[in-house]
Design a protein around this nucleic acid. Structure first.
Length: 482
RNA sequence: GCUCUCGUGGUGUAGUCCGGCCCAUCAUCUCGGCCUUUCGAGCCGAAUACCCGGGUUCAAAUCCCGGCGAGAGCACCA
């Protein structure tokens, strides 16, 4: 019996229905009109971690023809970098994400005062001058501070006087019996005497995160809130405010947390290091700030694509530089020019009877981009990367890429024919000595030389053959990925 | 400790709601081979996963129960 005869009896693979369904993120509920927001605190420029929320919000804005609001949350006068207001907006620009509206919370303090008066008036909030520990201890024991039980009129006048003097906080009442201690009574406003970078000393009573967010989300008409699941409890707190004010809640979507390995994303830490000149600035190529990554040549599309691809499940995920790099390479490879870079150059002299011409395309798959040409005469210097030179055997045949074959003899390279020989080693080389330093994100710097035609490529991303993709900047090259 | 989430290859993801087209999708990574004047790209192939244990069912990644594991929050930060 041949295998063909057996065929009908073998467990047949069921024909698979062609899955033509294009992969996309899950749809949003109530998507008739979609208003989203990206709401960072202006404590520094944006980094890789911020781009997820940005990418997802932007994705749904585009998908449903909605609106995206950039809201700068600067209600803590102590944690503001006054340059960040601008930096964040330029980071958005770089990503080609357009905010339909820019809102700054410190411009809206009166609004927060107005709404809290309503909540106090209906008994949903109280003022207390209790000190932090005492108040928290009582809460943990499910007990109320005496101030909590005062009449709304009293609370209201306490609030008005807090606007001008004295110490105290304004607290939203929740359920003191809530089994989750994190959800029992939370502070809505507090006193900060420090001057604010934009408002100076105009206000002394500042709203806290959960309160300001809820008020703004409502007043800005936010329909969908996309955030990490570290905000799960915050969402529950914010719902209390919606409840007191009789507002309809937006849709809340919580996605899992991302851990980004080997990457320092703490803005405050980075700022310190910059101050100590450990880093050259926010755009240091060792940083995962958008500015640092842009400097290495990452493309904005890569960020958006990566996060759209990562979905918004509630599982925690690990960021993969490998996958990220692969996506970036996929985007840039087809139109990135090639160039020879020689690290730790070793000098050789070429011996040839005829004049030679380097004939190297700017891109191997795109002849239409033209080529680099150069005449090489006998006696010219040829620089070879040290690691290649060390592997040379006396008399071995190597190919100088896009030039000719040579036989190695001491520090001479003797011409040995034009047609490429199968199996011979192919190496890149330079005739001129144009120094360039290659900066790796791990901090190593490799000194080398590059072909003499980089001036018109300044600021561009190119591929150093056999090394990887880099972005050129003057006499520096920043390593992107392989 | 309390409260709340979530467990599909190394990584990310599809499928889980409404059990059978799933001997489980796609991408990346890894390993072969082809191709190539780059260790890039391209092409072909291989390997690797439904956390564990019970139960329901003709049938379970999908439903139920119990373990285990991972993460988050518990600030007068955002």
């Amino acid at each position: 019996m041949s295998s063909e005869d057996l065929e009908p009896y073998l467990p047949s693979k069921k024909p698979k229905v062609e899955k033509i369904v294009e992969k996309q993120l899950p749809p949003l509920n109530n998507s008739d009109s979609v208003v989203l927001r990206f709401a960072p605190g202006p404590s520094g420029p944006l980094h890789l971690g911020h781009t997820r929320a940005l990418a997802l919000n932007n994705y749904y804005k585009k998908r449903y023809g909605g609106k995206l609001i950039l809201r700068l949350e600067d209600t803590n006068p102590n944690a503001i970098d006054s340059e960040a207001y601008e930096m964040i907006q330029s980071d958005l620009n770089w990503l080609n994400i357009e905010a339909d509206e820019v809102i700054i919370q410190s411009d809206r303090i009166e609004l927060y005062y107005q709404e809290i008066r309503k909540i106090i008036a209906e008994g949903g909030a109280y003022v207390t001058s209790s000190d932090a520990e005492e108040w928290r201890d009582l809460k943990n024991q499910k007990k109320a501070h005496p101030d909590r039980e005062r009449l709304p009129e009293v609370q209201l006048s306490e609030f008005e006087s807090l606007l001008v003097e004295g110490k105290g906080i304004v607290v939203i009442k929740t359920d003191l019996e809530d089994p989750n201690p994190a959800l029992r009574d939370f502070v809505a406003l507090r006193v900060v005497e420090e001057p604010h970078p934009r408002q100076s000393t105009k206000y002394r009573l500042w709203p806290l995160y959960n309160y300001a967010v809820a008020v703004d989300d409502y007043h800005l008409g936010i329909t969908h809130v996309l955030r990490g699941k570290d905000h799960l409890n915050n969402t529950l707190k914010q719902k209390w405010i919606y409840k007191y004010l009789g507002w309809d809640e937006p849709e809340y979507i919580h996605y899992g947390l991302v851990s980004i390995p080997n990457t320092n994303l703490k803005t405050s830490k980075i700022r310190e290091s910059i101050a100590e000149s450990e880093f050259s600035g926010w755009d240091d190529c060792r940083l995962a700030t958008l500015k640092g990554l842009a400097r290495r040549g990452y493309r904005p599309e890569t960020f958006l694509k990566y996060w759209e691809n990562s979905g918004l499940k509630e599982v925690d995920i690990k960021f993969s530089w490998q996958n990220f790099d692969a996506m970036n390479k996929d985007i840039i490879d087809s139109d990135t020019r090639r160039l020879f870079f020689v690290s730790d150059p070793v000098e050789f002299t070429i011996e040839t009877d005829d004049k030679l011409v380097k004939d190297a395309p700017w891109h191997p798959d795109k002849p239409e981009l033209g080529k680099r040409e150069e005449e090489i005469v006998s006696g010219s210097n040829i620089f070879i990367q040290k690691s290649d030179a060390e592997a040379f055997q006396e008399g071995s045949l190597v190919r100088l890429k896009n030039l000719c074959n040579v036989i190695v003899s001491k520090n001479k390279l003797n011409f040995e024919g034009m047609p490429p020989k199968k199996g011979s080693q192919i190496i890149q080389w330079c005739s001129s000595h144009t120094p360039i330093d290659l900066f790796y994100p791990d901090g190593t710097i490799v000194e080398g030389i590059v072909e003499d035609n980089i001036s018109e490529l300044d600021g561009e991303t190119v591929q150093f053959e056999r090394v990887g993709f880099v972005r050129l900047e003057g006499k520096k090259a920043f390593f992107l990925h392989r």
